[in-house]
Design a protein around this nucleic acid. Sequence first.
RNA 1: GCCGCUAUCGUCCAGGGGACUAGGACGCCGCCCUCUCAUGGCGGAAACCCGGGUUCGAAUCCCGGUAGCGGUACCA
Length: 449
Amino acid sequence: MRVRFAPSPTGALHIGGARTALFNWLLARHEGGELVLRIEDTDRERSTPENVEQILDALRWLDLDWDEGPILQTARSQRHGEALQALLEAGRAYHSNATAEDVKAYKAIHGADRGFRGEPQAEGAVRLRVPDDGATVVHDVIRGETRFEHVHLDDPVIARGDGSVLYNFAVAIDDLDAGITHVVRGEDHLSNTPKQVLVLEAVRAVGFGADAPLPEYAHLPLLHGPDGKKLSKRHGAASVQELRDAGYLPEAVRNYLALLGWGAGDDATVLSTQELIDRFTLERVSRNPARFDEVKLKWLNGVYIRSLPTDELTRRIEAFTGREGLERAVRISQEKIHTLADFWPLAGSLFDGPTDDPKARERWLGEEGRAALLDVAAALEQTRGFDEASVEEALGTVIERRGAKPREVYQPLRVAITGGTISPGIFESVALLGREETARRIARALARR
RNA sequence: GCCGCUAUCGUCCAGGGGACUAGGACGCCGCCCUCUCAUGGCGGAAACCCGGGUUCGAAUCCCGGUAGCGGUACCA
């Protein structure tokens, strides 16, 4: 089995594209086949080297590797030209000056009863001659047979007036030459498929890749945004880079993306990449479009974060935040965060000093709170050690002596040392800060007002 | 408009003629645990798009409608 992932570098790699890449990759790895990476850069207006780099960067981050390529489609223009010329000479394609308006006008008259068939001219864009009779049947592994009647098809433009080829032509030639056995891509390409099959048949008839097999097709259901519309920039984390910047783990993203349009079949949700490879088959790919649900991704990411060894999670958080010496803080935060980005807002004050939350101050550092804090400061001064257990013990004494509820002691202390009401566990946080820093922060909180 | 694809809880995925009182996950609601936030545990609400047909029997097969989406570029 040889599959390919063929993004066009007209923007960053989208979540939908990433899912397509993942499915191709899983399939190749499951079958022991090869994955070819091809960059479809025949759109000269919008393709840029920066976008190519972005796509490669996204694939690397996702840890999806490939066996051949990246092949730039434009680098194959000579081959495309030869195939095009052969089609021209055989009369299976022709030059035509007809514009989109001409075709539209033609269709206005003939409706769906007759596809546009141009008259050969000396120059102009190149159109593929579609037979009037019959139909092209696309055999789709996921959807079964889809029949496209030739009378409904217009002769498609396969090359521009200057001879440069267009997508539907290049794709067919490149898949053929690369020996692709399965074309797995988004459903938005289903309607293009008959054109590509027609190109394939025409080109083989004139001796190009006549002995190469015709690829099988598998069109994946499309991915939609939370609003049910096609995924776009408006949907926030729409690109792979945005996912990375939002603090998601690549393994969690792979797991989540695999669940969009595919299911293991036995209700399994959390699946390691190896399990994904072992279990992935095209037969289990769904036919319905799926919505990208960041809430569920976030939950899954939390599952992965909690299951990571603390030192590994620390490495990732240090890389993400650009800070060092975070291990202790990571250990006490691990079960409280869902993304790498959650860490700093939760525990950053342990390093950078308390933040300022006026509401928290007002609620917990009133007369009662300050009185409690005074007791806490005294108790913390004379603990034997300063680990979590001794901190807990000391605070327990304060609670008992004051006849207070635990929170009436813990919360003022939390606000004093972190500035807010949300933090890792209070004993852990205090122990991490140490006796002196804790005392300093309490004193500062008390002095304030 | 035309061509095509799709249709099960709010979302994702199961179930593909009787095992369906339709299952799991996220989310939501309630309870428990609890120093905040989380985590964890227990429980709950929540779906077969509509109409015909086939069949002893339809969520499941067929037809139609409707809706959503895609294509209809000298974009990919």
